[in-house]
Design a protein around this nucleic acid. Structure first.
Lengths: 217, 217
DNA sequence: GTTGCGATGTAAACATTGATTACATACGCA
DNA sequence: TGCGTATGTAATCAATGTTTACATCGCAAC
């Protein structure tokens, strides 16, 4: 059978202008990260998958780093969304429960989406400082955590002798550490009957239970 | 001034055989990681710094990954040494104190030597599974942590209702998370008056104090 | 409609990189 | 002394990031 025009994999007619190259490049890049890891992304490969010439990506991204940063921004949007959803899911207004929900939402998302989490947490492949979106969303989550713990402290739900700043630091480090351990394959030696995501959840639960005071209700 | 022979930067006569190329390449690679990050190491650059042709490194390392893995092995040796020293430094035989000393030694080393820690914790640039040395030393530290907590439990120094496996996981995640946060620049927003290494120490101290029971002595 | 301009693509080129191959040299042991 | 093998060089290859000159399309103004 003959075709009047060339076509790409999806069967669309191959036009000179792609129409949605930015999105296509980001999608292709995510695919490559899934297959080979973020360190082994190549712009040319992404261009090829988008059905476009090697130079085309540079019309939209100043550099390879800029492309990867765009991927990170998309990923951060999804993380923020997942964290928000985890918070709204628990009806409770209890600040401790809300705080833990952030951690659980973060953890679940990071473990379920290792590809996206990998690109977010990398600071050598992307230009974190140059992206307002990345910095602001990161800061927003951090501030929300501090707010919730401040509320908890005011309600007498934290041990009075506890150092507030270092508790926040420990909580963030615990969640971040669990997520990165999952990503870096540190769970390979874990009990096979308990999935990593569940183990991480329980470690966080343990931490919260020892650091906080149960509500009187 | 005239020289009878060519010489390298250090002034040694340039011989056809380098004499200690393996070490020189590892050293050069560490330098490059310090300057540009582990992702941007190039074998050719390492060869140039060692005063040798671009193909020479491949006589000693099958691939770029193998070179980076060798760097990781050297780094892991030093980490093991630092952890051992931190343990011997505290005279106490108290298992809880020994456990915390491991964490503090690990943390201090990782924060003081970000370059070496970076290459150890990367799992996409090196071939962790292929290196007996890396796997064994990693496993040794992990086993030592479990041993110490087991002893602590037997001496009644852990809360009886605590889940042992998840405590070990949380402890490891906390230390690993703190180390990676320092490496990834997450401490930039921290109080300038308290250095990151100290803040991390205190977060770990807080964790330990809430998870364990004070000795009667 | 036609025109024309800016946005978006292509093709070709360049320097750099990881890796291989054929050849050169020198160390150390018989 | 002589020779084999470990270790180096030089040349080469394909892949990559990025730039430049040119081609094509989309769309607003006339």
């Amino acid at each position: 059978m003959t075709k009047s025009t060339d076509s790409d994999e999806a069967g669309h007619a191959k036009r000179y202008h792609h129409g949605n190259l930015v999105e296509a490049l980001i999608t292709a890049t995510v695919e490559i990260i899934e297959e080979r890891g973020a360190e082994h992304v190549s712009v040319r490969e992404a261009a090829k998958r988008a059905g476009v010439s090697p130079g085309a990506p540079f019309r939209h991204f100043r550099s390879k780093t800029a492309l990867l940063t765009a991927v990170a921004e998309q990923a951060m949007d999804r993380l923020t969304e997942a964290v928000a959803k985890a918070q709204s899911k628990i009806g409770s207004a209890d600040p401790i429960e809300a705080f833990e929900a952030i951690g659980q939402g973060y953890l679940e998302w990071a473990i379920t989406n290792p590809t996206h989490f990998q690109i977010i947490s990398s600071r050598t492949l992307i230009d974190f400082e140059a992206s307002d979106s990345l910095r602001h969303q990161n800061e927003a989550i951090r501030r929300r955590m501090i707010d919730l713990l401040t509320q908890a402290q005011q309600h007498g739900r934290l041990a009075p002798d506890i150092d507030f700043d270092h508790l926040v630091l420990a909580a963030r480090a615990l969640v971040y550490g669990l997520a990165r351990m999952a990503l870096d394959g540190h769970f390979r030696e874990w009990h096979p009957s308990e999935p990593p995501a569940l183990a991480a959840q329980r470690a966080l639960r343990l931490f919260m239970s020892r650091m906080t005071i149960l509500s009187k209700a």
